[in-house]
Amino acid sequence: MATKVRKMLFILSKATIENAYAAFIMANGARMEGIESEIFFTFFGLEVIQKKKLAHLHVATVGNPAMHIPTMLGGLPGMEAMATKMMKKEMEKLDMPPIGEFLEILSDSGCKLWGCKLAVDMFHLERKDLIDELDGILTIGDFYNRADQEGCQLVFI
């Protein structure tokens, strides 16, 4: 392997669909190259690993100039749902898995998935609210300790 990167550690703090996919594709891409990867879900990122919520993530239509939707219109009821539907359709065309299936693939690929202890407590969540594939609930200090070798990279999303 030519790359000096040995392990990619991601912190996902948001629950918009584009951020979740960014983390997933980079983490999965690492595994496909033989690089270790782990994701730490914190704050709103926890929505991505909540059984009841993960299938209903949305793309943000307000405050995102690259959506090319005027902010006033982006805030109208139904806009987010419509934009999300369109994006999911495009993703399916590229054979990108939906969030739930992607989490299964990541777990099967050896990517470690962690929940943030402080955020879990703050949102009053229990282990049973979170996906079965979750490897555990950690403090940020525990997560830093996962960067236990040369060539680790930490990415905040």
Binding site: D95, M96, E101, E104, I105, S109
Partner: peptide, 9 residues
């Protein structure tokens, strides 16, 4: 047909 991890699954 393109190969992918999802295809394996």
């Amino acid at each position: 047909e393109p190969l992918s991890i999802r295809g394996i699954k």
